[in-house]
């Protein structure tokens, strides 16, 4: 211990998000350090998706600050489009663009945002598709791919901007059980390659294996956080114990 404190990739300080009178987030404090994987767990409706959407400014925060590599991105003068480019986001329902092939889905950001030539962007997209094991699906449209293939394409798309941080929102929840493994394996590989990840998940086994920190969201705050063996192994609050017994039953 005692080394110089490294600036975290993402830091949320006292984050509040209200929808009208409905207070979803009530003062979230959370830090994601470089190369680490932080897992968000919590009941349905506890605000995991809302937290992730606030993090890359898809939702406007009600109060509190967000720091990205030490820069306050909740500052109103910040160029939000430029900030979002530094995040890669993967959604529960894939959200691939149905009118584009897998290749064009992945090549879109390098072309439009990265201002690369078509040839360069497609070359990069092919590399990324190969990396997620879908080199042969480049010319397929999303509706011709399995859920697992679509989600792996979505991960390739999220990597296209070379993000500093990956936000994963229950990326395996919509998948058939036999397809969950291929997506989790891919995320494990990304982590091993040094990617920084903030993910909402219901996969407790995966949490135990891959997460460095687990945060339990309850009542709009991080009610409990720590290494997975501590949070999942010896939960201190009855709420967390109750939650864990519910999710491990299926």
């Amino acid at each position: 211990m005692g080394g110089a404190r490294v600036t975290p990739v993402l830091e949320l300080r006292g984050l509040h998000k209200h929808f009208g009178r409905y207070r979803v987030l009530n003062g979230i404090d959370l830090t994601v350090d470089e190369g680490k994987t932080v897992a968000l767990i919590g009941g349905s409706g506890s605000g995991k998706s809302t937290l992730l959407k606030c993090a890359n400014l898809l939702e406007q925060v009600t109060d509190g600050e967000i720091y990205f590599d030490g820069e306050e991105i909740t500052d109103p003068r910040v160029d939000t489009d430029a900030v979002r480019r530094k995040f890669g986001v993967v959604f529960q329902s894939y959200n691939l663009f149905p009118h584009m092939t897998a290749l064009r889905n992945v090549a879109l950001a390098p072309r439009v945002v990265g201002k690369r030539s078509r040839a360069e962007a497609e070359q990069r997209a092919r590399e990324l598709l190969a990396r997620v094991g879908l080199a042969d699906k480049a010319d397929s449209y999303p509706d011709r791919m399995s859920g697992g293939q679509q989600q792996r394409t979505a991960i390739a798309r999220a990597l296209a901007n070379e993000p500093r941080l990956l936000l994963l929102d229950e990326v395996t929840s919509a998948l058939d059980p036999e397809l969950v493994g291929e997506v989790l394996d891919l995320i494990g590989e990304l982590k091993a390659q040094g990617m920084t990840i903030l993910m909402a998940t219901h996969e407790m086994d995966f949490c135990r294996r891959a997460a460095d920190t687990v945060c339990f969201l309850d009542g709009g705050v991080v009610a409990e956080s720590g290494p997975p063996e501590q949070v999942l192994g010896s939960p201190s609050s009855p709420r967390l114990r109750q939650f864990l017994s519910r999710v491990t039953h299926h």
Binding site: A82, L108, A109
Partner: peptide, 21 residues
């Protein structure tokens, strides 16, 4: 709207999102 969310998450501006997605 999730299509817009996906496009904006890639860093596309609102006009680019409209035109391309």
């Amino acid at each position: 709207p999730s299509q817009r969310a996906a496009a904006r998450s890639l860093g596309l501006s609102s006009q680019q999102t409209l035109r391309l997605v």
